[in-house]
């Protein structure tokens, strides 16, 4: 039955009944399929990005994985546990961070929320102390422990929330938009911490995000969901291929020249004075193209721009729609 994955979804469905008012005292019942025959497997210790547009079914999936929503069909297991049936037992083994919500006590110093976690998850005293110490050090919470949560900045609160989710040594961590609204430095700090957590402790991480840099920097595997269906599951590089994305070569020439005669499929997409932009398939190496231009044109400088994954996904959707 099980495929050996730590998180196993087999044709999982979630259907919501939505009642819509259609007239005076009249309602129309409609079924919304938030998750539709979703199957995937995540191995222990993997760090997987889970992306898709708003309303794609990401949060519904995470809620089913925590057990607060019951699937309408299919089979779902986390660490061998059926989440909705044994929510409390599972809760001791998972950590959840919702970027836009907080698990911390708003009016009280940060440390009070941690003491509560200590009791809630029945963490052995020594374990609690060492985990707290480690989180405080790595997330730089030292000066914040005695500050009421309502006085923390968004980035500080986020770090506080991540620590709160990790004190009980969860085997898997679900992160829902952990970097939303954070500044560049806070984002870098959070990512650095997650990378360490994954490599040092082997914590399995499922990361939902809109920030594609999170995925680029953290996840070797990415799953794309839309309309409740899995659109792509594989390495990040493959996503570019699936979306037939293009990289851009920006070339600075000595002087204004007519568009460079590049070998297809590379082509000039824009010219602005001595600067020209060439698009070429992301899967293809830039080297031959660069060599050719350098040989035939008075080249001053060049740079390669990676495609924006959001655009890649958008293109992938467009392809499916026309197919």
């Amino acid at each position: 039955m099980t495929g050996g994955g730590f998180i196993e979804l087999d044709r999982v469905e979630k259907v919501f009944d939505v009642r819509k008012k259609t007239g005076f005292l009249r309602w129309e019942r409609r079924q919304v399929r938030a998750v539709d025959s979703l199957s995937f497997s995540v191995a222990r210790g993997e760090m997987v990005g889970y992306i898709g547009p708003n309303g794609a079914g990401k949060s519904t999936t995470i809620k089913m994985l925590t057990g607060i929503l019951t699937p309408s069909g299919g089979r779902l297991r986390v660490a061998g546990i059926d989440p909705s049936r044994e929510r409390t037992r599972l809760a001791h083994r998972i950590g959840v961070v919702f970027g836009q919500r907080t698990t911390l006590w708003w009016d009280l110093p940060l440390i009070d929320s941690y003491k509560l976690m200590h009791r809630m998850y029945r963490i052995p005293d020594a374990r609690y102390r060492s985990n707290l110490e480690q989180c405080v050090e790595l997330l730089q919470l030292d000066a914040l422990l005695d500050v009421p949560v309502r006085q923390l900045s968004l980035g500080q609160r986020m770090r506080g929330d991540i620590a709160a989710a990790l004190l009980h040594d969860p085997e898997v961590l679900y992160l829902d938009e952990p970097t939303i609204g954070l500044d560049v430095i806070s984002k870098a700090r959070v990512r650095e911490f997650l990378r360490e957590l994954n490599t040092e402790r082997g914590t399995t991480v499922l990361l939902t995000t809109h920030d594609l840099q999170d995925i680029e920097q953290l996840c070797s595997r990415v799953m794309v969901i839309d309309h409740g269906r899995l659109m792509y599951d594989g390495p990040l590089a493959g996503l570019h291929e699936a979306g037939e994305s293009e990289r851009t070569l920006v070339v600075d020439l000595e002087r204004e020249l007519p568009p460079i005669d590049a070998p297809a499929p590379a082509r000039v997409v824009r010219v602005e004075g001595p600067r020209q932009w060439l698009a070429f398939p992301a899967a293809q190496s830039a080297a031959p193209l660069v060599a050719r231009i350098a040989a035939e044109y008075p080249l001053v400088d060049l740079s390669v721009r990676e495609p924006d994954i959001e655009a890649v996904i958008a293109r992938m959707y467009a392809d499916r729609a026309t197919a």
Partner: peptide, 13 residues
């Protein structure tokens, strides 16, 4: 109303 109750529900309490 805001959905924050989700946090209360996944806790082992």
């Amino acid at each position: 109303r805001t959905g924050d109750v989700a946090i209360d529900l996944y806790r082992p309490a």
